[in-house]
Amino acid sequence: MGPIGWRKRLRPSPDWTTTTFWAIDVETTGLDVRRDQILSVGMVPIRDGVIRYGERFATLVRPGSASVPTHDGVGIHHILPGDVASAPTFGAVVDAIELRLREGLVVMHHAPVDLAFLAKAYRDLGRTWPRVRVIDTLDLLMRLHHQRHHFTPFPPPLRASLRDARAEFGLAAHDAHDALSDAVATAELFLVLRSRLGVCTLRGLG
């Protein structure tokens, strides 16, 4: 397709750009949602189709006394027990997070895990998860993968991690497992996937 075609097809659509999206990522002490807890949260908004890095929000979170960063977790996100000792509890930052979540839609990469941790953290505070609409970049990636390989008899396996998915579109390796970096990386991936899918409306985003 020539440049003219792209220009025509990708002219900014008022539909999706009128909404604010908050990309969010959380780092946790481990992967067991019953036992492990949130250690950090990173968020960045997309307004008018542009990532507003200036409005980024990131905080470390001090886990409850029952849980400390496990050895495994430290190896992944490099957050040490000492780093979070003086951090606010989830209860102290939940309002700041929710204020942003309620502004529009939420973007996550592989949402189920992070969502489970957030819902659990809400439950522990005696609150209810606000049930905002979530767009999972992994779902968008699978849709694109399916479109591309619809007629391929043996399609290549989907490379699902945030880093691999970004690499597929030539996006540079980011500082993985830092909540804010992951949130920005997810937001960038979202912009690329939306463009590739040619989706211009909120409904189209699924």
Partner: peptide
């Protein structure tokens, strides 16, 4: 103040004789 935007191949960021640029652009990738 920093913003991050994605421009797909062939997309026009600024148009000759068109709207005045309202931001400085730096190519990241």
């Amino acid at each position: 103040a920093l913003e991050i935007a994605y421009a797909p191949p062939g997309s026009v960021v600024l148009t000759r004789g068109g709207a005045v640029a309202e931001r400085l652009y730096v190519v990241r990738k």
